[in-house]
């Protein structure tokens, strides 16, 4: 995945709460065997309504999405992260996320920024007025041209992976010896655990 440190640009003032992953990408789009092109199906039911924020030319190509509480709840489909990435979005700002979605986002180089609702309300206003927003992962801040400055927390391991564009599988494969040791210890203590897993 691409490394990420600073995202600057317009933000889509979406703001909705409890946006489930069926809304982000309906199931009919999950029949793919690749990760590509899912932006076409992103937010399909919302985009079917005229005047929606996603098709508003003012926000075309915006790298930031602002949303409400519990963003990405429901299904574990990583297609939701792929679809958002395909729209060109590299940061989402919301008061909270589903646990599975925020993990999927980070693994695809999308930064899920957590900020309280009053900060979200302010950023929605800034975005609607046509101003740019800056998300800086290194300093863990979101700023506007009006001296707004919101600090956010992020898990240090996630930050490290995002800043360096790291592939977790490659990282873990460097620890194969430790995994092997763990497996041998468990095989000695609980040999029944791995017998009979074939029918």
């Amino acid at each position: 995945m691409d490394a990420l440190s600073r995202i600057e640009g317009r933000a889509i003032p979406f703001g909705a709460k409890n946006v489930d992953t069926d809304i982000i990408i309906p199931a009919v789009w999950l029949k793919t065997i690749t990760r590509d092109g899912l932006g076409q199906g992103a937010f399909e039911t919302i985009r079917a309504v005229e005047g929606n924020v996603f098709d508003d030319p003012d926000y075309a190509g915006s790298p930031i999405l602002i949303a409400g509480d519990n963003f990405g709840c429901g299904s574990s489909r990583e297609h939701a992260a792929w679809a958002i990435l395909d729209l060109g979005i590299r940061a989402v700002i919301a008061p909270s996320y589903s646990d599975i979605f925020s993990g999927n986002a980070v693994k695809n180089g999308i930064l899920p920024v957590v900020l309280p609702q009053d900060a979200i309300d302010r950023l929605m206003e800034v975005a609607r007025d046509g101003h740019e927003i800056t998300v800086d992962l290194d300093t863990q801040t979101v700023t506007t041209p009006f001296q707004d400055r919101f600090a956010f927390d992020i898990d240090p391991f996630r930050k490290h992976c995002l800043l360096n564009g790291l592939d977790e599988v490659a990282l873990t494969l460097e620890r194969q010896a430790q995994i092997g040791t763990f497996e041998s210890q468990r095989a000695a203590a609980q040999d029944w655990l791995t017998k009979g897993t074939h029918i």
Partner: peptide, 22 residues
């Protein structure tokens, strides 16, 4: 618990996941 496709790949390759305790 449910996982995304990147984690499916991670489990297939390493039989582990990198997690924070809930």
């Amino acid at each position: 618990f449910g996982i995304g496709t990147s984690e499916v790949e991670h489990v297939l390759a390493t039989q582990t996941l990198l997690l924070q305790r809930s």
